[in-house]
Simulated scan of single mutants.
Amino acid sequence: MASGAGSPCGACKFLRRKCLPECVFAPHFGAEEGPVPFAAIHRVFGASNVSKLLRRVSPAERCAAVVAIGYEAQARIRDPVYGCVAHVFALQQEIASLEAQVMQGRAQLGLAMADLRPPENPSRKEASVLPRSCSGEHSASPQSSLDCTHLNDTRDPLFMEEQRPRKRAHHGDDLGELHDLALRMMMD
């Protein structure tokens, strides 16, 4: 007997047969585990099919094959139509959702970093943007200087667009494309 001490392996115990020394199931379904782990595999695939499969697999890879077969058998019992494919699909959807969140976070981080960069040469930019009454000449009325305060506001999208150098998205650079899209959305 392959399991030692005269007791059959879990698979042979489930099948109610004598466990031979060359039993392909003995290394993977011990007597102490009992027949329960093998029951799902036998129910879904059949002992004969699993035996043939394990004999074709190299001995070094049999343990991984038994784990995969057992996982698939449990998944087939839970979901007879899709098996583990339903779980794989759910994980792929979760990965896609998380990747979208990461890209959105990177785009937001890129915008935040761009807002923290100092302007290239603010005195030259302001002089070219401001109208005559706000370009440093003091006007007589205090109201005219108040009318121009919005032009110096760094949160104004037009002012931000002129100060921030525009990066070109490289082919395949999703972060650059998202950054450009976010800038266009802010301008609207």
Rank of each mutant, 00 (worst) to 15 (best):
G110R: 11
P131E: 05
R132Y: 11
V24Q: 03
G70L: 05
H42A: 14
L111S: 04
P27G: 06
P35A: 15
A86M: 05
L98W: 08
S51L: 02
I69A: 01
A60M: 06
Q93D: 14
V102E: 11
A68I: 00
F38P: 03
E120L: 09
Q104S: 15
E94H: 10
V44R: 08
P59M: 06
A39I: 00
E72F: 02
V36H: 06
R78E: 15
C63H: 09
Q108F: 00
R62W: 03
A73C: 05
S48Y: 06
Q101I: 01
E61G: 04
Y82G: 06
H42E: 15
Q92M: 14
L109N: 06
I95C: 11
I77W: 01
Q92A: 13
Q92N: 12
A73P: 06
V67T: 11
L53F: 09
G105H: 08
I95L: 15
A127K: 13
A65W: 03
G105S: 13
A47K: 03
S128Q: 14
V66D: 04
V44H: 03
V50K: 05
V36D: 09
P131I: 00
M113H: 09
H28W: 08
G83S: 05
L53D: 08
N121E: 08
V50I: 04
S123D: 13
H87M: 12
A112M: 08
K125Q: 14
Y82L: 15
A73W: 00
G136F: 06
G136N: 07
L111E: 11
A31Q: 10
L98Q: 15
P118D: 07
P35Q: 10
V67A: 15
S51M: 07
V50R: 05
R56H: 07
V85I: 07
V85Q: 13
G30Y: 02
A86W: 03
